[in-house]
């Protein structure tokens, strides 16, 4: 080891110096990241009177999340919307990303330029994207509805974001529009890593394109599918700015796009409840555990699938 002499000297006289190098980063990170996260845990086991900590109540705040009818009637739909967003992302965005990646694996010209174009919306602030689509989809002056009126029957032109039955599907489509470049690039990289001889050999044996995809390409893409599934889950659970721009802090219209992030924000800063701090802290810990736990579980299930092959 070339470093050995320096190491010995450092250990001898000046070991303390190295701690000095760490101090600024330790202070900043401990104070503003670690301390709040740990304190959040303790907040959740007390009842609160406004900003004043009251009595130790154990798990009461947690139980309250599911027994307090006023809160539960918000929590369950919000959770459902996050999960619907995850399902929609998997079905629409990631399927499209895979289809594009397969198409690119055959395309000869313009591949690089097209991939950049597909990924461009991903660079734009989600808040900007939300507001942009609010304008585009506006029932009165929105270009999208003007276009729909011009090319199709009038029923197609409607307040897509203003109607509770279509608002959440629109959120899924807009999310897809922003993010589709990401699974596309990951799948492209994974497909590029599959030796071409596999598919050729199968074709020589008379397999159709579909069978080659189903029996050779898809199984070999399992690790990529696993990664994308986990990242999509985390992304769907943490969505905030986009839905805020599309439907405001209450997830309008009529709560049809309310999600956990918005609910947490309202519980913490806009509920007016005397025990808001206790409830919101319990919600934060619950959400963290749920998201983190499910991520680990998903990882384990997907890994097992890989090993079983």
């Amino acid at each position: 080891m070339a470093q050995a002499p320096v190491t010995t000297r450092g250990r001898g006289g000046r070991a303390g110096t190295w701690y000095l190098f760490l101090v600024p980063a330790l202070l900043l990170y401990s104070l503003f990241v670690v301390y709040p996260l740990l304190t959040g845990l303790s907040y959740s086991v007390f009842s609160w009177k406004g900003t004043v900590r009251d009595a130790f109540v154990g798990v009461d705040n947690y139980v309250g999340l599911f027994t307090n009818e006023a809160f539960r009637s918000k929590l369950l739909p919000a959770l459902g919307h996050n999960l619907a967003l995850f399902a929609g992302t998997m079905l629409v965005q990631n399927t499209m990303g895979l289809a594009f990646a397969l198409a690119f694996s055959r395309a000869r010209r313009g591949k690089r330029a097209l991939q950049i174009i597909f990924a461009t919306p991903y660079l734009v602030n989600p808040l900007v994207i939300g507001y942009l689509w609010t304008l585009l989809l506006s029932p009165t002056f929105g270009p999208a509805n003007t276009l729909l009126r011009a090319i199709g029957p009038d029923e197609l032109a409607k307040p897509w974001l203003g109607d509770p039955s279509t608002a959440l599907p629109m959120v899924i489509l807009i999310t897809t529009w922003q993010w589709v470049g990401f699974p596309m690039l990951l799948f492209s990289a994974a497909i590029g890593g599959i030796p071409a001889e596999y598919a050729e050999a199968a074709r020589v044996d008379g397999a159709s394109s579909w069978r080659v995809f189903w029996h050779i390409t898809l199984p070999l893409l399992r690790p990529a599918i696993g990664t994308i599934t986990v990242l999509s889950f985390i992304g769907s659970m943490n969505t905030f700015a986009l839905v805020y721009a599309l439907g405001g802090s209450s997830g309008g219209p009529a709560g049809s796009t309310d999600v956990l992030g918005l609910l947490f924000y309202r519980a913490a800063f806009a509920s007016g409840d005397i025990n808001a701090v206790g409830t919101a802290s319990a919600l934060a810990v619950f959400l963290f555990t749920f998201i983190f736990g499910t991520t680990i579980l998903l990882n384990r299930i997907l890994r097992q699938g890989e090993e079983a092959m």
Binding site: Y29, Y35, P36, L37, S281, L287, I291
Partner: peptide, 24 residues
């Protein structure tokens, strides 16, 4: 220990500590 202490922050979603952060 210090490496672990710093790097573990990469997986922690800081948003969940926002209430204590606000009071701090």
């Amino acid at each position: 220990f210090f490496i672990g202490y710093f790097i573990s922050g990469m997986t922690l979603p800081g948003h969940f500590g926002v209430l204590p952060l606000f009071y701090l």
